[in-house]
Design a protein around this nucleic acid. Structure first.
Lengths: 268, 268
DNA sequence: CCCTCCGATCGTACGGTGTAAGAGTTCCTA
DNA sequence: TAGGAACTCTTACACCGTACGATCGGAGGG
């Protein structure tokens, strides 16, 4: 019944992270000795945790999240599957590392003094990055701690809010609301893209048939007037427009609330 | 290389859905003949799609998303694994059906005339339901079509916006912004809950050690002033408070924008 | 120089997974 | 009574994560 506990340390591998990799609140993969420290001191061909993570990301980018398996990553590195376990505690750990690595790709504008512009820019960058790595939305739920790159992300985002002179909690509250929004958007967007991709595999004729028969049945029931109308209308808003609309409205609301005089006190 | 195509029909099973189950834009599981139509006309013990979905949901509720396997669900139904495939096209399909079934649990208030109250109520209901079925955030990405229950959800949500007299597109835009928010919140909330649960397995002493050593290292770097401050502060906002704050601000922004005179035209 | 040690890699094996193929069972209809 | 549709089961395959122990190769001590 009780599955294997999270391995504390085996083979006597070292525990220390590569120094400035700071993980908070829970341990990520721990078995790793620091990777290939002095170049070619040991074996010429030295496997490293970063290499593994990069390869796994490449696989996920190219063939989707379900293609990421230990054996597959190992094969791409010309290495046996079990070799990976020296550098990475488990597959779940690898996923966590992948997520944090991508989080490091997001470019973070340094605070300009215009908090709204900064936040908007960060949100767009986040969205672009998740769009570039569509698998992120499937793995992001595996995150069970704050990785070094997310720490940097949060720190910078909070710094961008400095001009507002909020308490740290109010600032965090604002930040979380915005992050919530763009995380949710990324999730929905990914779903939509998958549906679109599925539909692209149909011939135009098939597609038209499926859609119109669906809409037809929808209308026939007479119980979905709004939906019928929606599907019949010609132009739909693009995803970009929807992203910008919701983000702008959220920031509008936050801005107004702040102008109204500090964040509303919550009872307690 | 090319994996199995989605099975069109095998064994000559019927295709028709149970009549009012309306799926749009892509097919869900199709092999199912309609389940146990006339009670005990056939075998006394008749497996049905709904039973399978319910059992799968029960497994997920009790033991988490990773416990849901075809064999496991079959075992709980005292049936062989392959029997499920008569009623359900694949595991992915089962997941889609599970998601839609849960979506049907969300209670939908009938429009009261106060759109903001209605939307808020729906958002809370959605959050509560996703909280009750924590696995939803891991499966929701599998949705590749609009299930009957989500159709109802959208239809009702759009109806709630009627008093605003928007074009159907603008209404949809508003709705999507809100859904984006509470979907994102559910995702983050689930992450947080998993972290909390992980931490609950530690003794208070261990916990304090882990956290404070983390914060200590954080401070030591001198590069995370905001985060350090955040972790040292005593009171954190509850999740409820954060949920309500972001939702209210988003609705504030939408409201203000609408008052400003119809939704802003987007160039094109 | 060899020998020992240990970091790193590998081979094998176990118990799980999703599901294709087709045989077997049960019941309704002609 | 025969036929066939509706449904269930057995078997088998390829793949998965990973426990365990053998093995390899270079660094340090004698």
């Amino acid at each position: 019944m009780s599955p294997s506990r999270q391995g504390d340390s085996r083979h006597g591998g070292k525990r220390s992270e590569p120094d400035d990799a700071l993980w908070l609140l829970a341990a990520p993969g721990d078995p790793g000795a620091s990777p290939a420290r002095t170049g070619s001191r040991r074996r010429a061909r030295q496997l490293s945790r970063d290499q593994i993570v990069a390869t796994a990301i490449a696989v996920a980018d190219a063939e989707g999240p379900e293609a990421v398996s230990m054996r597959r990553v190992a094969r791409d590195l010309n290495v046996s599957a079990m070799s990976l376990y020296w550098h990475v505690a488990s597959k779940d750990d690898l996923l966590v590392l992948m997520v944090d690595a991508v989080e490091g790709e997001i470019d973070i504008p340094s605070p300009s003094g215009d908090w709204r512009a900064d936040v908007t820019r960060t949100a767009r960058g986040y969205r672009q990055t998740l769009l570039r790595h569509g698998w992120m939305t499937s793995f992001i739920g595996h995150r069970r701690s704050l990785g070094p790159n997310e720490l940097v992300h949060i720190e910078h985002s909070l710094a961008a809010l400095d001009p507002l002179q909020l308490t740290i909690h109010d600032a965090f509250n604002v930040l979380m609301a915005v992050e919530t929004y763009y995380l949710g958007f990324a999730l929905r967007e990914q779903q939509e893209l998958m549906i679109e991709r599925t539909r692209e595999e149909l011939s135009p004729a098939e597609l038209r048939a499926v859609v119109s028969s669906g809409v037809e049945r929808l209308r026939a029931t007479n119980r979905y007037p709004h939906l019928t109308q929606l599907f019949e209308a010609e132009r739909r808003l693009t995803r970009d427009e929807r992203f910008e609309y919701g983000l702008a409205r959220l920031l509008d609301g936050i801005e107004a609330d702040l102008r109204r005089g500090a964040t509303r006190e919550v009872g307690g």
